[in-house]
Amino acid sequence: MAYFFYQTLVGQILLMLLETLAVLVPLLIGVAYLTLMERKVMAAMQRRRGPNVNGAFGLLQAFADAIKMIVKETVIPAGANRVLFLFAPFLTFSLAMAAWAVIPTGNGLAVANINVGILYLLAMSSLGVYGMLIAGWASNSRYAFLGGLRSAAQMVSYEVSIGLVIVSVLLAVGSLNLNDIVLAQRHIWFCVPMFPMFIVFFISALAETNRAPFDLPEGESELVAGFFVEYSSLAFGLFFLGEYANMILMSSMVSILFLGGWLPPLGIAPLTWIPGPLWLIFKILFCLFVFIWVRATFPRYRYDQLMRLGWKVFLPFSLLWMIGTAGFLMATGLLPHMGGVNS
């Protein structure tokens, strides 16, 4: 059995497929229940009940929504670029799925434990903008186009500060491997010494996933629904799934970079009994809760304020922090040596 999976070509391909499914199936179920969690949590914050008709506590609501979406008619607007119009949601969805290949859910437990894992994540999240840009352009609609342009400018701006925050974390780790990043937090999670960067990263993650209060690309009060105005049925569904999968991805990035990934909080007995993947899921859930909490609490930013926050506040601050981190590590001799993978 082991010989078949590890030595033969067919076995390796089969193993890869199984590993992929083992990540994607829980992810998609997670997305389904994230929509329910969002509605329930927001309802509780606004003193309502939220969905409670389909199944106990509305547990089947997400599936009812999915079936409703699938049976709707796919409308392609006249004058739209058909190929690109259908390609955009597909791209958004597949990029959101592809990024999950490198997320470690336990020590060395990832589909692909690659040397440049964090760069891969950064690359995949920076590609997400194409889905929106192409959707906005191919729809041949003013609202969609404006939404696409907004999202492009917004995501490019906030990627810069995300990149700088990641660099300051990497300075303390000495490796680009996600597994190493988690293992480097054995003694103390990075959210303690780098608390301001944790906040900057979290807010940038909100902007990167187009969540409230930075949901200007889809600002319904001025742009109807932004870049996906013209989408219906499954094409819309793919955008929706991609967006929520990106939220979970960003939450897991926050957990891995700052909250110690799969590591238990203190490393003492009763906490270490809970397996690593569960800890990662708890931390992701915590981040997602804060995502929803922010949405229920804050009003939407104006676009110039959003740009100001990104370029005039976060960028200089994270650059300064990065230089400070490098200086501190150099001065105290704590700079990690060029470590190999998982050393």
């Binding site: 440049v116 760069l119 950064l122 920076s126 840009l133 352009w137 186009f145 342009l149 492009a152 490019v156």
Partner: peptide
């Protein structure tokens, strides 16, 4: 050269080409 590959995607695809596309679309 996985580092160069990722850098190419992040810098050229993720930033430079986005701005290209941004301008060309308008």
């Amino acid at each position: 050269a996985e580092f160069l590959a990722m850098l190419l995607v992040i810098v050229y695809v993720g930033a430079v080409a986005v701005l290209f596309l941004f301008v060309v679309m308008m």
